[in-house]
Design a protein around this nucleic acid. Structure first.
Lengths: 342, 342
DNA sequence: AGCGTTGATGAAACCGATTACATCATCGCG
DNA sequence: CGCGATGATGTAATCGGTTTCATCAACGCT
């Protein structure tokens, strides 16, 4: 019994089963339309030959790819990888594969050159964009597959969006902290040209206004980059402030954890001397010390909704809606009323 | 100027440039072999028509896919997503795309049925397996692309492996804790049929033996599942032990953080009353309180090496080597000598 | 001048499936 | 019995590139 040098093709199955290739193809895609006897014969022949479909050939004929591309700023970041998990779940149910492209390392080359070839119907059947810093022009070129934006979004790109209600989240944070009695609240923000940063800021300012606090000046916020390190680095500047804030709202949990770490090293007790809260509710926020008060958003669900929306678009749905997902305040132990002498 | 309903094909470029399709194809793949004049004409025609290559067609003819599949137990886990980031870097340099398949949700269906169709030359040009719990038979079926194992590995699967030196890591942990004077050390392990768990355990026992400690009995370890929660859940059992251990070695950082959290809630001071250490050196381990002593492994590098090895295999290299990456002890503040009265 | 070599190009086969269309047998019905 | 409808199947076109092979001109060499 000699091992065949190449995998069997549909032609081989047809020969073994004594039918035409068309019949084999039909048996596989729609068993109902072939007779009982041929179906059996074909199935036996498939088993006997060990045949597996060549997807590339099918895709060429059917003008599709069978895969969806996710454009993510950084796969290594759990924030995004959790969204990917949600996307992955939905895609697999439909038999589609997930292609992941990390846009971080694109930086040193023009995005069009690197990303351009991927934004093509012969590369994927649809695209989920998780990176708000990309050029909208990339996605309006002819031949670009249907696009859905998730989490972050690109100004000026007319495509459906799925996002957490970041404005409401910022407002909840302000409401929580002012409700505890804080009046000097510092905002550690994300990077500047970022839609998440902007909406969380907007909601935060709204919340302060609702509590009757004056709009803070430019010195009442410090810019971070969503990394833990930038929270830590903000601490010396926080400690130098006069008067010192009694509460700190960070645009994500990582930075909040960095801030708490820095404050502890400096001997400041959280929340007794300074309250700190975050955003996102990453898993670690429940386990750090003190457990972090934060705004919860559902990232797996966000990924799922994005994938569902994309699937709809791929089937011709032309509705450019924005899906807004609820957020929720998670009250833990890193926030408390301000100290009496503040 | 009417918008063409379908994207231009190579035929259109050929017509505009006044050459044959073969010449256009040659110009794109190997500009050196066409004359200067035709090269110019073709390039102009490509620009004029806005042509982009249909990859599916090329792949069909060239019998390749242009993508590599990564099989990961859980994309959402930062441990794996960081390895993916390393893989992604290498792949992009070669113009290959990364396909990700999450094997967690496969659980409810037979792996062969779900995974089988993906382990096929028409789906990917190569596979990187990060899940040690899969059936080796999946990868020995005819038509399966070249395979490389990374991080975890499958017993009985004859494919190259890239892994951190987990045995040495376990040994370093034992050495560190015994060096501080601990003699009652509890091991919170990973799940049971897992190659990481086994090798860390092996190294840990080696280290204890080297320090002249008797081999611990079955009651000197608690089984976890690598999740933070399982570390937390271990705490009541730890506190019930008599005599109580003075140090705890956890098979990963997440569980160590869970343990520390639980101990703190119970009023036990780390490291003054009990020392705790982890494994992996996730980013958070440097920022939690107290900062975690752990064994560092380089996950991005691991991903890169795995991708490089796979690329070599895809080009016919038949060497089934095992690449072992160094680990390093990161001494931080969660470990200290045992209390005097212990 | 004659001839083999080289370089540039075109015609057509090919990759492996799907599917439009043709064919043929069977069946029901008037 | 004849005829259209129906069902099962085969033939061949098709998807959009790459690549083999053939062709032809230009060139160098004896």
């Amino acid at each position: 019994m000699s091992e065949p040098s190449r995998p069997p093709r549909i032609h081989d199955v047809a020969r073994v089963a004594g039918v035409s290739v068309a019949t084999v193809s039909r048996t596989m895609s729609n068993p109902a339309i072939v007779s009982e006897a041929t179906r059996k014969a074909v199935e036996d022949a498939i088993a006997a030959t060990g045949y597996t479909l060549n997807l590339t050939a099918r895709n060429l004929r059917q003008q599709q790819v069978g895969g969806v591309l996710a454009l993510v700023p950084n796969i290594a970041n759990p924030f995004f990888s959790q969204i990917l998990a949600g996307i992955s779940t939905v895609l697999r149910q439909r038999g589609l594969s997930l292609l992941v492209m990390d846009t971080t390392a694109v930086g040193d080359q023009p995005a069009l050159a690197v990303l351009g070839p991927y934004l093509n119907r012969s590369r994927s059947d649809g695209v989920i964009v998780l990176d708000g810093s990309l050029d909208p022009g990339l996605f309006t070129r002819p031949g670009c597959p249907p696009v859905v934006q998730a989490c972050e979004w690109i100004e000026g790109l007319d495509a459906p969006r799925v996002l957490a209600d970041n404005v409401e989240g910022g407002r909840l944070a302000a409401q929580h902290l002012t409700g505890l009695g804080h009046r000097r609240i510092l905002h550690v923000t994300g990077p500047a040209p970022n839609t998440l940063t902007a909406s969380r800021r907007q909601g935060f300012l709204q919340g302060l206004a609702q509590a009757g606090l004056p709009a803070p000046g430019p010195n009442d916020s410090i810019r971070g980059d969503f990394e833990t390190r930038s929270g830590l680095d903000a601490v010396p500047r926080i400690l130098a402030m006069e008067p010192r804030p009694t509460a700190i709202f960070c645009d994500n949990d990582e930075m909040a954890i960095g801030v708490i770490h820095g404050l502890s090293m400096a001997g400041i007790a959280v929340p007794q001397q300074i309250s700190v809260m975050g955003f996102d509710n990453i898993e670690m926020s429940g386990y750090c010390l003190p457990p972090l008060t934060t705004v919860r958003q559902y990232r797996t669900r966000l990924g799922r909704r994005a994938a569902e929306l994309l699937l709809a678009r791929m089937q011709g749905d032309d509705d450019r809606q924005t899906v807004m997902l609820d957020v929720e305040l998670m009250e833990r132990a890193s926030t408390a009323p301000p100290p009496k002498d503040a």
